[in-house]
């Protein structure tokens, strides 16, 4: 029912988002607290290798998400790609040694169930001029 390209772009959106945020998080930890720093400090932070790699992946993420939105509903894309939050929590545990408590595991379970529900709806519900013919 769900087209191949929807699956491919959904996977791309999720993976680039998770890995991009992971690299960004690792980079920002090395850069240190940004609170109270001048705007130029943010620009300087962008040149940190890990931050730059994270940003590059997040650019790919943004373009693939826009592509997906060109044929799929916002109310479909947003919950489905939130599977990335689950992966982010797991990535935080594996790569950054962050704690995942039982409460967080419960949250992960609820998110996955929510994603499952939305994945059982059609990606496109409203009519668009460009999608009139299949």
């Amino acid at each position: 029912m769900v087209a191949q390209k929807t699956r491919v772009f959904t996977a791309l959106v999720i993976v680039t988002n998770v890995v991009g945020n992971l690299l960004l998080s690792m980079g920002m930890r090395q850069v240190g607290s940004m609170l109270g720093r001048p705007p130029v400090a943010y620009i300087q932070a962008l040149f940190h290798p890990l931050v730059a790699a994270g940003v590059a992946l997040l650019i790919v993420w943004m373009i693939s998400q826009m592509t997906l939105l060109s044929w799929a509903d916002l109310s479909y894309v947003m919950p489905i790609t939130s599977l990335g939050y689950v992966l982010a929590a797991l990535a935080g545990r594996v790569f950054l040694n962050e704690q995942v408590t039982w409460q967080r595991w419960g949250g992960i379970g609820l998110i996955m169930f929510g994603v499952l529900l939305v994945s059982r709806t059609k990606p496109l519900t409203e009519t668009r001029a460009s999608s009139a013919c299949p």
Binding site: Y85, G106, F113, G114, L117, V118
Partner: peptide
């Protein structure tokens, strides 16, 4: 399904 899905994800988020 979409309302419930969005709601469940939001609750999951609150727990996280």
């Amino acid at each position: 399904k979409r309302w419930a899905g969005a709601g469940l994800v939001a609750c999951g988020v609150a727990l996280l």
